[in-house]
Design a protein around this nucleic acid. Structure first.
Lengths: 195, 195
DNA sequence: CCCAATCCTTGCATAGTGTGCAAATTGTGC
DNA sequence: GCACAATTTGCACACTATGCAAGGATTGGG
């Protein structure tokens, strides 16, 4: 038991709130749901809601899964080609995201309709991108190259999720494959014309 | 005179409000400035403030200059290499941004400290990215490649601006050159390892 | 020059957001 | 069990944002 009762309850309540938020938000749109309703639906007071999340947009997004340490380690020390190792890394992360497709879809709909939510997610993504930049810097030894690669990594994931949301028949991994192919082709175009 | 008095006043008031907002926000941080203060400082009522901007973050950002039609035209029909034409396009856009470095710097500081503001800017960037995707699609005939290129274009501009903000000695164009070189190197790495 | 249509500004009322504070309750570790 | 720390909650309060309606200014036609 590595988590105390208090810590487990805290996590559970946070998830309860997110569940309640997404349920109401999907029904009526985030603009038409009040923090009061969310709190009532989650069985807590309005004040307590704000002890868990700064606002309802943050509650809807929850805490997105970041990159896993082990995967970053593997990317940093990988021996295959950079493209291959990076693709493996992105596949792993996408598998993590695929564990909760329902939430992913609901959060996506919030992000498309609400600027504030978009900004909050941007904060999470920026921090992931920074981590990945450090990791790639250790491998490619050049900060600008690492930053460009990291940007493309988070961007590819985002675009793949959007493609998956729209397609109705693609799996997340399949969507990532398609977006990834596009990135490689774009890279070849740029590389070829700048030799 | 293509603009009526009313239209000119509207634009002028919008800029007045942005100026007043940025002035107060730079002094005290956006969280410590109220819409009431901004309105007073701009010489209008609080209610009128909300006739111009949805919120103070939007007032701070104002209306960022989008891509110019002529530049997109040139990019679409360009005959040099794709990399060269794209770089020219980005240079042009950066020159436009460089026309108001003071505002750019102030807006940047807001974006770094405020999630809502980032979300709002994200909306503008997303729409620019979509335009650019269409433009590039007409040139490269592949939607995924166009999307990857357009993403990198907006991303490169953003990263260049951040580098410029931090460096204190680089010009915007010089910062763009550095970031652009990083992108090309990254593209070559990816292209080489995926042949 | 005047009039009607239109747009703009403003005050007021109101619903909702988010924070500080302090009292009460509940888990933690010794 | 007891002292300590974290959590919940109500309450007060400042601030955000919108709808509405009255009044004022601009426009264009006659």
């Amino acid at each position: 038991m590595t988590l105390s009762l208090r810590q487990r309850r805290r996590l559970e309540t946070a998830r309860e709130i997110q569940k309640a938020t997404l349920k109401l938000v999907v029904q009526r749109g985030i603009e038409n749901v009040t923090t009061e309703e969310i709190a009532a639906s989650a069985g807590i007071s309005t004040r307590t809601f704000f002890n868990y999340y700064l606002n309802k947009e943050a509650a809807a997004i929850g805490e997105p899964p970041g990159y896993r340490e082990e995967d970053m380690e593997a990317l940093q020390t990988g021996t295959a080609s950079l493209a291959a190792d990076l693709k493996t890394f992105l596949d792993k992360h996408m598998e993590t995201l695929a564990e909760d497709e329902a939430v992913l879809r609901m959060v996506g709909s919030v992000l498309r309709s609400n600027e504030k939510a978009r900004g909050i997610l941007d904060g999470f993504l920026a921090s992931e991108r920074d981590q990945l930049t450090e990791c790639l810097f250790a491998r490619v030894k050049d900060r600008q190259i690492a930053a460009a690669l990291a940007s493309n990594a988070t961007d590819v994931t985002e675009r793949a999720i959007r493609l998956w949301e729209q397609s109705e028949s693609l799996s997340l991994i399949a969507a990532l494959d398609i977006i990834w192919e596009g990135l490689l082709s774009a890279a070849q175009l740029l590389a070829a014309s700048s030799e």
